[in-house]
Nucleic acid binder design. Structure first.
Lengths: 224, 224
DNA sequence: GTCTATAAGACGATAGAC
DNA sequence: GTCTATCGTCTTATAGAC
């Protein structure tokens, strides 16, 4: 509009566009794509429904934009790892980062789960490429650790799936966990406790816990 | 109708009712409640749509019937456990049963996950009562094992969640796993391998794996 | 119990004034 | 860019003949 700064129509980063995206996340989180309603998204964002369609032509476009944002969050959260790294440090770091991600972005975690659950039609490109590469990269490093005798023999994929599933579970089955704990909200302490507990279990799986590896001094650095 | 056997209208167990229920499961599996369409369910069951409404007055009723059937499956699958039981045997048995359940009823697993993911509104009674009791019962036994020195100290709830999440993951993220494995179908062998791998990891978490417990002969029964 | 036809309303999307 | 009014379609559910 202004002569100085011309904004592209529907440019990424418009304030109202962000408001609508945020409202859409909340709607998709609890209703999925099929159950989501454009009217409810408009109401949540406090704009007329037609305004939503101005920024996102179709419901499909809006959903895709939400998913892309989530994948962007993933990508900037988990660093690459190397076979020379200390296994205990890397594993503890991964568990802590994953738990923290779930705590900070439970909504993103649930929408991602929902999409994968229903067949991942809108994510097939991501799942077949970046996601698969990411997993194989980590699995390869874990294999090397096993080959070098740094950790006990373990199926690398199942170890990754175990960590992945356990952390996702806290977001995706939040209702179930609240029921079991008889709480109405999960606190920061609950997440910290989960991170510590899961880290301990993962280290035991790899034979890296302090009591078991008393003889292997090189692996004891992470112990107090 | 007949003078000999009078059937209740909409009685549980009618053949056509079962056909419709089965079709509904397939529809809810990939579309969720909001995305499911009564017309598609009718088409899958190969009956006119009005016939579906004859057996299940509303979409809500049909969905509730599907959920009840799933809970029934859960209930008859997992036996109670006791603190006097052998921890290794019980844990291996639980992992194997859970993996087998996921393999036999991936549809039930996915619908249950979907319902919990979206807030479990139709399951709140089950989650708050039977489900919570089930979990506390198992957690209590695990606590006793820890107290009696039968297994390493471990958070009982997180151990249960870990097993639960890891097994569910195989059904609920099937697409993701197929992508990583670059397969179009998961085979019986994949499930057997998962059961064996997860059992090994769980035993290590509890300090019950063969190599670690070489001194504890009483716990070696499960080793070949 | 079964099935065709249709009611009643909700839904995504758009036209067009401002 | 914004917003009201509305279009055409899809969807659940029912009425009523057989």
């Amino acid at each position: 509009m202004s002569l100085v700064r011309k904004r592209k129509i529907s440019a990424v980063g418009t304030k109202k566009r962000e408001t609508i995206l945020y409202a859409a996340e909340k709607e998709f989180e609890f209703h999925g794509f099929g159950g989501a309603r454009m009217q409810r998204i408009a109401d949540l964002a406090e704009v007329p429904k037609a305004n939503v369609h101005y920024y996102f032509a179709t419901k499909q476009d809006l959903y895709s934009a939400v998913l892309e944002r989530i994948i962007g969050l993933w990508d900037q959260t988990f660093p690459a790892i190397d076979a020379d790294d200390n296994p205990a440090k890397v594993l503890i770091g991964f568990v802590e980062q994953k738990v923290e991600f779930t705590r900070l972005y439970p909504r993103a975690t649930r929408i991602f789960t929902s999409e994968v659950l229903y067949g991942g039609l809108h994510l097939s490109d991501y799942l077949q490429n970046r996601m698969t590469q990411w997993t194989h990269n980590r699995a390869h490093v874990i294999k090397q650790w096993v080959a070098n005798g740094k950790i006990k023999p373990v199926d690398p994929f199942h170890l990754i799936f175990l960590i992945w599933a356990s952390t996702q579970h806290f977001a995706q089955s939040e209702i179930q966990i609240k029921s079991v704990y008889q709480k109405t909200e999960l606190t920061r302490e609950d997440y910290d406790h989960q991170a510590a507990s899961l880290a301990t279990m993962v280290l035991r799986i790899c034979g890296l816990d302090c009591k078991d590896s008393a003889a292997k001094t090189s692996l004891r650095r992470h112990c107090k």
